[in-house]
Design a protein around this nucleic acid. Structure first.
Length: 279
DNA sequence: ATGACCACAACATGTGGA
């Protein structure tokens, strides 16, 4: 199974690039973030013509997540247990949830497409929301990896955190003063990993960014950030055979500001890509 | 080379992005 994650920054603007890339890279499952539309606005036909079915969670023009898959998408969820909500100007537990998470099971793999809140700035209510959201995700993850360790489980998405100093090449983003690199955000990321998942891309692709701001020649200057990750449980991680960050997708006409990250899995009983052995 | 923000709703400009 070839499974990938990509913050597409509007699927309606990007559908041709996204589907072309999926077909070209033989992608079986894609977790998308920032689709920026409701399900009825999603360009479903172009995915179906390429052989993919979809699970879509979008409430308005903001955020939005989806999963595309060649195999049936089962047990779809549009939030994890304890996921906080947010509404500007409204405090407390009654804030509505946003479209930032969709989970499903595909070919026995339990996958999540996640768009972690941005945080906006240190001290903003959105920053507290981000930390709370990540803490709830860690609790949920610990529950899943503990209760069902045999099920390959993965958190895929735009985490909006650069966990290590070398993950930030953008001089505008200042250690200690900006979101994405503040110690509490990094601690929240490590707490998530301690809940039973590990970055399955970094050991195979030690260097490289996944995001470059559209402004100020960030991409030509290679002033980007590594903030998009695939975090897999032990059962998921031990099935990974390769990983890649598709930097070329930041080039060309109308790119997203993020690029896809992809891993290949060799699952038990997954022999579709292997030659038949006789005798 | 990859080039000096982009997408959305709405129709001017504000919000959000990281």
């Amino acid at each position: 199974m070839r499974i990938a994650s990509w913050n597409v920054n509007s699927i309606r603007t990007r559908v041709d690039r996204v589907v072309d890339w999926m077909v070209r890279e033989d992608v079986d499952v894609l977790a998308m973030q920032e689709i920026k539309c409701k399900p009825e606005q999603f360009p479903i036909e172009q995915f179906e013509e390429a052989g993919y079915e979809l699970a879509i969670h979008g409430l308005n023009q903001w955020n939005g997540v989806a999963i595309a898959s060649r195999s049936p998408i089962e047990q779809v969820e549009t939030s994890f247990a304890g996921m906080p909500g947010f509404l500007k100007g409204l405090e407390g537990p009654d804030q509505p949830q946003e479209a930032r998470a969709i989970g499903a099971t595909v070919d026995g793999v339990h996958v999540w497409s996640l768009y972690v809140p941005n945080g906006r700035s240190l001290g903003d209510p959105h920053y507290t929301y981000k930390l709370d959201w990540l803490a709830a995700l860690a609790d949920y993850t610990r529950g899943q990896t503990t209760a069902r360790p045999e099920v390959p489980f993965a958190l895929m998405g735009d985490f909006n955190i650069a966990p290590f100093d070398e993950d930030n090449g953008d001089p505008v983003v200042v250690e200690g003063l900006s979101t994405h690199v503040s110690p509490p955000e990094r601690q929240a990321f490590f707490t998530l990993e301690n809940a039973g998942v590990t970055d399955v891309v970094r050991p195979r692709v030690p260097e490289g960014y996944t995001y470059w701001d559209y402004k100020q020649l960030k991409f030509p200057r290679n002033e980007g950030m590594r903030i998009d990750f695939i975090l897999g449980s032990a059962a998921f991680a031990e099935a990974v055979t390769s990983a890649s960050i598709h930097r070329n997708e930041r080039k060309g006409v109308a790119p997203s500001d993020h690029v896809p990250v992809l891993v290949e899995l060799a699952l038990g009983g997954d022999d579709e890509d292997l030659p038949m052995i006789f005798g």
